[in-house]
């Protein structure tokens, strides 16, 4: 098997991987704006997937913050976030929203909400997100300097479980 040796899915950097070298790291940023969106409308991607990945990008028009998605204030407690998630789930979850239609839109909607919930309900992810958001929007409140340490962090790794 040609392919087996050099790569390891989880630790690409632990192994020397000659076959992979042609892909320069920056090209991965292409992933952030899924090119597939434009591919075909059957690729129901549109709204959702770019949103998730847009957060780190500054050039795009500021998307709704995760707080907006969950309809909670910035200072919401984790209790608030949980109950907001549940309230929205009862409205937007495809099981409730689209009675037996091909409710892909409500699925997208709900995936957004769930992604927001996953980030905001995890104290660590939330603080990372908060700092990033503050830095980007230069808000009136004291912007704690989130230094550069998180800039390279890739949000697509924020997998919810």
């Amino acid at each position: 098997m040609l392919s087996s040796s050099p790569t390891s899915f989880t630790h690409p950097f632990l192994s020397s991987s000659p076959p992979l070298s042609p892909i320069s790291p920056p090209s991965r940023t292409a992933r952030i704006s899924p090119p597939l969106v434009s591919a075909s409308c059957s690729y129901t991607y549109t709204e959702d997937s770019p949103r998730l990945h847009q957060i780190p990008r500054r050039l795009t028009t500021v998307p709704a913050s995760l707080y907006d998605v969950l309809e909670v204030p910035l200072g919401a407690t984790s209790q608030d976030i949980k109950s907001a998630y549940r309230r929205l789930a009862r409205i937007c979850h495809p099981d409730v929203a689209g009675t037996d239609r091909t409710s892909s839109s409500s699925a997208d909607e709900f995936m957004k909400i769930h992604a927001a919930y996953c980030t905001l309900s995890d104290p660590e992810k939330r603080s990372v997100y908060d700092r990033r958001m503050l830095r980007r929007s230069r808000p009136l409140t004291v912007g704690t300097s989130g230094l550069g340490s998180y800039v390279g962090r890739n949000w697509e790794t924020d997998q919810c479980w």
């Binding site: 087996s4 390891s8 899915f9 959702d48 997937s49 919810c160 479980w161």
Partner: peptide, 22 residues
Amino acid sequence: RANGNKFIPVIPRNTMVPARKD
């Protein structure tokens, strides 16, 4: 199936449904 005979999960176990990952 990728990396030889490895199983590479695209949507891991215990992911919320509906789900979309790539």
